[in-house]
């Protein structure tokens, strides 16, 4: 229970700037993800072998025709980057929904019921933490073949631990508060107390965890796709773009710099936003 946060004047101002930066990045990414089919300048899947590895516009030999150049198969890099944003966001959000449902259900039950149920929940969390995520995800995709659905389900089944930990500890705190006792006295059912008293009061903590999980899922998807066992080609996942461009990186480093920077900035933006929300809600996300 070591909470150290001193909200002095200057920190607040700085915090709000970083939160806004995060919000803007996430906003742009969400727009790109939703509007990708209409805003891409070219078809992200169309190959043009006559136009392979054109450099971005700011480098010598680049043109504004392909702003970020083209890849090793002549596909427009900007279009692939925007489409990749759609895939990253889609996977980040869906994995978080799956893992959130599992983790919140387990955590709230353990925290609310206590006793044997809570022991079982703690055991499940301990076991989950001992399982190497990347290795198991790779093994599942490797054995069953790569598809988006399988990837989302696998990561969702592996990443619920932080949701469970935070849902459990916050539920325990709320459970003992006066208004819950009042609801018991008023004769409310268990379910009603869970749904109307407990969940709304732990929701802010869970929103912060959700931002962290979206960021983590996006990073993991990129790593798995980079290893060739994530999103199947020719879908332009950023991890897959880096893997496909790897052979050319020593001669034209920009081919891996562009998708990598996009990935880094998106994850940073989500984390900045989550950090700001945590301060705003006064939420705790550490077990």
């Amino acid at each position: 229970m070591s909470v150290v946060s001193v909200n002095a004047g200057p920190k607040r101002g700085w915090k709000s700037v970083s939160t806004w930066i995060g919000a803007v990045i996430v906003g742009i990414a969400t727009f790109c993800a939703l509007a990708a089919p209409w805003i891409v300048p070219y078809d992200p899947f169309a190959q043009d072998l006559g136009k392979r590895l054109i450099v971005p516009f700011w480098m010598a030999g680049g043109s504004t025709e392909h702003l970020l150049g083209t890849d090793q198969l002549g596909r427009d890099y900007l279009s692939r980057l925007i489409w990749g944003c759609r895939i990253s966001m889609l996977i980040g959000v869906t994995v978080t929904v799956v893992s959130g449902l599992i983790g919140i259900a387990i955590g709230v039950l353990g925290g609310f019921l206590g006793g044997r149920v809570d022991d079982a929940v703690l055991f499940a969390i301990t076991t989950r933490l001992s399982i190497p995520v990347v290795l198991v995800a790779l093994a599942v995709v490797g054995l069953l073949g790569s598809s988006m659905t399988l990837l989302v389900l696998t990561l969702g089944l592996l990443l619920w631990d932080r949701f469970a930990v935070v849902a459990r500890s916050t539920t325990m705190q709320v459970r003992n508060l006066d208004f819950v006792a009042a609801a018991w006295c008023a004769g409310c059912s268990r379910f009603r107390i869970l749904a109307r008293e407990v969940l709304p009061n732990i929701a802010s903590h869970l929103v912060v965890v959700a931002t962290l999980e979206v960021a983590l899922a996006i990073l993991l998807e990129a790593a798995l796709s980079f290893l060739g066992l994530g999103v199947p080609p020719p879908l332009p996942s950023w991890g897959l773009m880096i893997a496909e461009a790897k052979d050319y990186m020593f001669f034209s480093p920009w081919v891996i710099v562009i998708p990598g920077v996009a990935l880094f900035v998106l994850v940073l933006g989500i984390n900045l936003l989550g950090d700001g929300l945590r301060d705003l809600f006064g939420a705790r996300t550490d077990p």
Binding site: A222, G239, F250, G260, V267, L268, L272
Partner: peptide, 21 residues
């Protein structure tokens, strides 16, 4: 604190490739 946030957002495999270059 910013360094910590930057580190958290860094894709490890990509950092590896950048260091190689």
């Amino acid at each position: 604190q910013l360094v910590a946030l930057l580190g958290q957002a860094m894709p490890s495999f990509w950092l590896g490739l950048i260091l190689m270059i």
